[in-house]
Nucleic acid binder design. Structure first.
Length: 162
DNA sequence: CAACAGATTCTCT
DNA sequence: GAGAATCTGTTGT
């Protein structure tokens, strides 16, 4: 289990996103293998950072390698990894993970994985613990358009294993 | 200050 | 495939 250095996230979200697949994150004392991600940059109309810095998305403009957690639809949390440089407003949304001993369906879906791993706003702005366990991805990443959003949904910025 | 859309999921039909 | 649950930031009056 090799810890990823802070500089690891200091690249464009569209570069970090596919690289994040099959990496391992420590969340709530548990290890989660990332299987699906989505990239968001400031020029993306669907990104929270598109209209500039607000108290809610402040973490997204903060230091890369930290978490950005927000509440969506008043009931679900979504977990993102801040990427690029300070002030860039970039992040990678974690859409699905695999946790040892947990039904995959309980951790697939951005809202579901946060509920299962007890991810809340207290993680917003916290340092992200990421590891590379050296295990090669079972398959090459598949690129596809995004779901769940209405703006620029056809941008090919979603990557998944499988 | 009121209105509204939204990076979701569940529960029906 | 449609509707509800539920709240925050943004925009308009």
């Amino acid at each position: 289990m090799q810890p990823l250095p802070p500089s690891w996230a200091e690249r464009d979200a569209t570069v970090v996103a596919p690289d994040l697949l099959n990496k391992v994150a420590r969340l709530g004392g548990r290890l989660a293998r990332i299987t699906e991600v989505e990239a968001y940059t400031q020029d993306d109309p669907a990104s929270h950072s598109f209209r500039g810095l607000t108290p809610r998305n402040a973490a997204m403009f903060g230091a890369p390698g930290h978490w950005y957690v927000y509440l969506i639809y008043g009931m679900y949390h979504c977990l993102n990894l801040v990427t690029g440089g300070v002030g860039d407003g970039q992040a990678v949304l974690i859409r699905a993970v695999i946790v040892d001993g947990v039904e995959p369906r309980r951790t697939s879906g951005p809202g579901r994985l946060c509920r299962e791993l007890a991810v809340g706003r207290e993680l917003d702005g916290a340092n992200a613990e990421l590891f590379d366990d050296g295990v090669p991805p079972p398959t090459s990443p598949l690129i596809s358009s995004r779901v769940g959003i209405t703006k620029a949904a056809d941008w090919p910025r979603r990557w998944r294993l499988g």
